[in-house]
Design a protein around this nucleic acid. Structure first.
Lengths: 203, 203
DNA sequence: GATATAAGTGGAGACAATCTCCACTTTTGA
DNA sequence: TCAAAAGTGGAGATTGTCTCCACTTATATC
């Protein structure tokens, strides 16, 4: 997935170092220091030499991407779980609301997304795709159910989510993010073409 | 507005240099090279020494901000003009659609926004505020008219616009951006509370 | 448990971009 | 025309990034 072409398993000590780097990185993400730190200093903080740091993660972004990737996987799992246990529209609504919660708690993730956006990161694109697949599933299910329009793709929803993530430092972030979700959900429901002439209200 | 504390007017040659820098910057924005260039080289390209460049714009971001600011002013003017000449909802819709066009054409602006987002730029915040004021005007007018809900602020719309701007490099950008606008508009209309008594405010 | 070799380490120093400093030039206004 | 104030520009200091390789550690083999 990241960094190394070979597929031979890493030596034990290498694995330990790699893990130490990821753990420290995650810690600094949450505290928001990650992007302000000299990268060499980061190596010392994690208890490895600079050479080792650079071998495992050739750039700051590569490391950020690794952490980002784990977060996205968690998010996708959540989407799948919701989809399996709730009616389609409710699952979608819950996921979107939860997404805001998630961003609210994982402060660092938002900044990471914003940063990766400016670098044209391939992992970000891939992560987006994975997340998008999950969202597509939710949207498509709801569309099939007839509670949601079918003519606006999950891509648009993704874009709104990106906006929420990227604008994390705005003062009234939380309220505005909820507002965006409300608009998106209502916008989706609005255009629905139910099989029967009525419909079930959103949430 | 930017950079200098004093208020004495700039000397003639200084004004010329400053202008040259801005002109060149704008040019490189459009071509997309601005953020990939060595900053010192940029000075030579604009025909001034590095010292001069740094005195006028102490960082690359400061220069980006100056250009950004001009763009935002243009956008705000457009909003005001629309508001004066069209019915409220139509003005809002037109503005949002036009915004996408504008971003589509001014390729560089999108990247600038994305970059400034990651730096916590004060100018970006201020620009957002200005734009937001304009959008607030449009939304409020439409709300008063009764064609649009009143319980979701312009901040949410702004966030969606940020998302559109920041995600400028996504493959299907144009279509998705239009989708977002559709969702936002329909979401706004959806929750409208006409003078008649019914409806429930969505969260 | 000794040995060979492949894998990994870490930090000194090369490199590259940013930015400062100041001897010099240009403008201003008296 | 001249003095003071304002501005210039580029050589070189500074700072963060990254490479290189002499050394250490793990693994596989006997």
């Amino acid at each position: 997935m990241s960094t190394r072409g070979s597929d031979r398993p890493l030596r034990a000590d290498a694995q330990r170092n790699r893990q130490a780097l990821l753990v420290k990185a995650r810690e600094l993400f949450e505290s928001g220091e990650f992007f302000d730190l000299r990268f060499d200093d980061f190596a010392r903080l994690a208890g490895v030499g600079t050479g080792t740091l650079y071998r495992h993660f050739p750039t700051r972004e590569a490391l950020a991407e690794a952490v980002y990737h784990e977060e996205v996987v968690a998010l996708c799992d959540r989407a799948r779980r919701l989809r399996a246990t709730l009616p389609a529209l409710e699952a979608l609504a819950t996921f979107l609301r939860d997404f805001v919660d998630y961003m609210h708690e994982h402060h660092g993730l938002a900044r990471t997304v914003a940063t990766l956006m400016t670098t044209g990161s391939e992992t970000l694109a891939e992560g987006s795709r994975a997340l998008e697949e999950a969202v597509t599933g939710l949207v498509a299910a709801a569309a099939e159910e007839g509670t949601v329009r079918g003519d606006v793709g999950a891509g648009a929803v993704m874009m709104a989510l990106h906006g929420i993530g990227a604008a994390h430092d705005r003062p009234g972030w939380r309220a505005e993010a909820d507002g965006v979700i409300t608009l998106v959900l209502d916008g989706l429901v609005q255009g629905a073409q139910p099989s029967s002439p009525n419909d079930s209200p959103a949430r």
